[in-house]
């Protein structure tokens, strides 16, 4: 018991060290590019939490990243690298936009249209994710590359829709499709844009995944496949069917993310509608070592960095990709420190 306690503190120590190293490298980078580091960090924090508008931007961005990351835990549990997640979010956004456009002028109530569009988005994400599974199972294409191919196809499809059939009357441009009328927006608090519905979906999503992976039969079987696919197969778990299932569940979540990006964040279809949340979600999942309890706080921290960095070019003429650098360094050094810890503690 005592030993377990100590090793837990040692773990924490290494993780703390990793964070320090990541911060040190980022600071070094700032110094090298001639920026005052303290000022930069201050702007980053102020940009995220300095005003009510900023805080609400953080909260609006939180739900989509939270949901995507929650979904990714399912494919990770089955030992799968769902790099196709970006395409799945995109397809979710496309399906949602499609339904919104189709019923925009119908007699259905706006509430009904929004619900339908979100369901359609989830279906779109699931469809795209199951294609990754089909390519893997029946085509022998590793999910990383199948997913990448489908990501490219998804972003090509968005470009086609924006420049082609769904272009704005008069001007087709990268600014996306026509903005939907206010009644087709997810209802939000006053004029801040924060939607309690998006929140509820985010919290519900991570709770479902937490209990699904922890306490259900299917969740445990997925984990067995992730740990050792051969012995899972020998034990009689139908492996490819379960992998397919995990892709589809993750796709549902990715599709929901896309649906929220359209109904709650941008209110139209954009070329970069995913905001890169798919890949960012993969990074967060790695950072938290795939543990569901950490998803909510760490995704909040990551979107805060994203939102906060918007301030940097204005205040300090620094490129906003600083947030991406810090986000990447954190994951990189946590992974490396974990390796160092394992190496050191094994010898003892």
């Amino acid at each position: 018991m005592l030993q377990k306690q100590t090793s837990r503190w040692v773990n924490l120590g290494f993780q703390f060290l990793a964070i320090l190293v990541a911060l040190a490298f980022t600071t070094l980078l700032l110094v090298l590019s001639g920026a005052p580091p303290i000022q930069a960090y201050k702007e980053l924090i102020l940009g995220a939490f300095g005003s009510i508008d900023n805080v609400s931007n953080v909260l609006i961005a939180w739900a989509p990243l939270l949901i995507t990351t929650a979904g990714l835990l399912v494919t990770f549990a089955a030992g799968l690298w769902n790099i196709g997640i970006e395409g799945q979010i995109t397809l979710g956004a496309i399906f949602t936009t499609w339904v919104l456009r189709s019923f925009e002028n119908s007699s259905l109530s706006p509430t009904m249209i929004i619900i339908l569009s979100i369901v359609a988005g989830m279906f779109g994400g699931m469809l795209w994710a199951s294609l990754v599974g089909v390519l893997k199972t029946f085509g022998g294409v590793n999910e990383i590359f199948g997913g990448l191919g489908l990501n490219f196809i998804a972003s090509t499809l968005v470009l086609y829709l924006i420049y082609g059939p769904w272009r704005r009357p008069g001007v087709a441009s990268l600014s996306g499709t026509e903005i939907f009328p206010n009644r087709l927006w997810l209802p939000s608090i006053s004029n801040l844009g924060i939607s309690p519905w998006a929140f509820a979906l985010g919290i519900l999503g991570i709770l479902i995944i937490y209990f699904f992976l922890r306490g259900t039969y299917i969740g445990l079987k997925l984990k067995a496949i992730g740990k050792n696919i051969r012995s899972a197969h020998t034990l009689g778990i139908p492996t490819w069917q379960y992998m397919m299932l995990s892709f589809m569940i993750c796709g549902l979540f990715a599709g929901l993310t896309g649906a929220l990006q359209v109904t709650n964040v941008y209110h139209r279809l954009l070329p970069y509608i995913t905001s890169g949340y798919g890949f960012l979600g993969l990074l967060v999942a790695m950072l938290i070592n795939y543990q569901a309890i950490w998803v909510a706080p760490i995704t909040l921290f990551y979107v805060a960095l994203n939102v906060g960095s918007v301030q940097l070019p204005i205040a300090l003429k620094l490129d906003s990709n600083l947030s991406g650098v810090l986000q990447g360094f954190l994951v990189l050094f946590v992974l490396l420190m974990e390796g160092v810890r394992q190496k050191l503690t094994r010898k003892v």
């Binding site: 590019s33 890949f279 986000q327 990447g328 994951v331 990189l332 992974l335």
Partner: peptide, 19 residues
């Protein structure tokens, strides 16, 4: 895992340093 993190970090680093 490491390769993927590096890819994403290097991209951000390039856009940050390159501006």
């Amino acid at each position: 895992a490491v390769g993927f993190v590096l890819t994403e970090t290097a991209l951000s680093l390039a856009y940050f340093l390159g501006s």
